[in-house]
Design a protein around this nucleic acid. Structure first.
Lengths: 212, 212, 212, 212
DNA sequence: CATGAATGAGAGTTCATTCAT
DNA sequence: TATGAATGAACTCTCATTCAT
């Protein structure tokens, strides 16, 4: 019993070690230019070993998204559980949570956005794909629950809360991708934070009922 | 002379022929899994011929974006030139223009969004990169000019019009990427149109001054 | 009659035009890195036209050797015909002739040396190969005749004159290849001339009988 | 440890195995017509494996030269160390050493001569290029030291010993290239040995002071 | 005779993945 | 479990050559 558990824990630790290494390399070189050997070197393991823990490169790549999605959920649930009564403040808290997620690991988050609607998705183990779907769903539902409250209170306009959550998520990913893109192309300053700020402000005004 | 012009036209037609083929294949197989030979076969040409018209795979890929950006600009400038006085109606027109662009060629638009902030950008001919930058800039500026008017009239809230344009663009790309992603993952219905609809509605509310 | 001749002449002029262009490009980029298109551009012709005058790239390349061999023969025969009686002076004249040939076009001469014993030779038209053989033979024989005289006079040691000619030729090509090589590798000064000078001096001493 | 050493040895053996195969194929087909796949097949390995041991085709090719240069140095140093007092006999020993090197592997030696002053040199790893330069330098210096002795003793004429060494090397390579060339073109007998014999004889006479 | 667009075979090289140790 | 050498399919891209005009 104890032995089995320890093995389990060690296996999990090894997985983490590889993911940390992968994250570093993917962040530096981008997905397609990263080789399994790069990752193996970074993890101080041999290429073959990676395959003991991950089915293939895509799977390893996608696994990274899981972690950030998990972190997102934690932060979102925290916002929900804080039980802030003022819906405006809740939106603020939501914004902060999302920005934290971005700052937690910008590259991985961007990679995850790229993962969306790319061929990579089709090569994943059903199991992994399910996990991603499940986590995405929970994130969106958690977000939606915030809006649901506000709608029920008559504070927000009456729209499908899931649709609103989709829009927030879209806006969030859109701003990050676009601002990062501009930063790279034009070698300009990083406007992610300020643009997100404005975007959320407009969004909040947009869903808040006019209290005559 | 007639001869020169005809050659010119034929050359352009060939380019188009290749781009059409490329579009089809990229859409089906995704960028990284598409080989130049695939495209050549689709275009009923030999692989070598592609290189007479496009420097390399990346360049061919990116060229597809140019066309849609050009179409976007045409539509946006049309909105500006229509001289609609009601800012709310202008936002509606903007929304319709963007949705038209999406419908013009969804896959290519999505590919273009993917192009943003990917390594591919770094491999392009400076010339092509400049073209893309230039077209992007013009699109955004055109959009911004719409908001500028509304702000000057006191109809929209006082935010940097370029930042607002960035947000609209982000929202647009974010919604399309995310809804497409959901569609693929969950094999569900296509909500792009309805989500864009709601997003624009919220956005409009968000930037419109409360007229007490 | 006149027409035919003019055509002939024009054809020959075109050949020369191509060879001049080819020489320039081969000299700059080296044989394997030179493309037929490079040469066509330099000659202000289209690639296809080159094939009207030369069977293929190898053939064009080898043709260049013909010209320099012809020039060599002219110079050598001149030395023979000058009827210098002093064999020592004839060796000096020989040396000068060869150095002139080197200076006439170093790159082409070097390329010709490379041509020797390489695969290129095997791809040539029998006709061209015969021409090269013939010219080489004549060069060597001309050289040999110089030594023959000296041997007959008892001025030179009694060795097969053809063998001596082979040695002079080998020494000549060896020095040029090796000094050029050193120049490239070590980016050092050009010692071709001074080394040839010394080599000929030693050679002359070596074949001259000790006149007790 | 034993294991590490064995691995080391096996790795070296693999390198040798590849070089032997490469030598065979290069000799048969010539450098440019030899493909990496040819070599891989000859070595009974896969193409990819070659790249584990050699950076690229040029590098593999050039590596072959290293071995023969090393052999040359060994033979030359042996001549120097024999401490033969008679300079004439030393020249004989030198000649024999060089002829041995030729016989050790004629094709590779010829390839090495071709390598000199060809574009291939420019594509090599700096490291490999340095090795070649270093070995060449040592060979020439060792040769030069033989002449230096003779000059100091007043036995040889007073010329820069390094220049003399260059001339010997040039003569050696020149004779081999030229005789091989003649052999191929005219399908005649192999005169390398006898021509080298005569060349050295003339050379010896040429640098030896007349002892009145 | 001249063109130059098109060809298409084939090259060198990479790298995710496997498997004997 | 971990290794890392070996694999070999697959890739992009080049270029000598052809041929319809």
């Amino acid at each position: 019993m104890g032995i089995k558990e320890r093995k389990e824990r060690e296996k999990e630790r090894r997985r983490q070690q590889i993911m940390v290494a992968a994250k570093r390399v993917f962040s530096t070189k981008g997905f397609s230019k990263t080789t399994m050997e790069d990752i193996a070197k970074e993890a101080e393991l041999s290429p073959g070993t990676l395959y003991l823990y991950f089915k293939n490169k895509d799977e390893l790549y996608a696994s990274l998204s899981l972690r950030i999605l998990q972190y997102l959920i934690i932060r979102l649930e925290h916002v929900v559980n804080e039980k802030i009564s003022d819906p405006g403040k809740r939106i603020q808290a939501l914004k902060e949570a999302m920005f934290d997620v971005y700052e937690f690991d910008p590259m991985i988050l961007i990679n995850m956005f790229h993962l969306q609607s790319s061929d990579t998705l089709k090569n994943l183990t059903p199991k992994l794909l399910d996990q991603i779907k499940e986590l995405s769903k929970r994130s969106l539902e958690t977000m939606a629950s915030i809006f649901e409250d506000g709608i029920r209170n008559g504070y927000f306009i009456d729209k499908n809360p899931v649709a609103i959550a989709d829009i927030v998520w879209s806006m969030f990913s859109g701003v990050i991708l676009w601002e990062t893109s501009k930063k790279i192309i034009n070698k300009q300053k990083d406007y992610v934070k300020s643009t997100l700020e404005t975007a959320f402000e407009i969004f909040e005004r947009g869903i808040t009922r006019n209290t005559a």
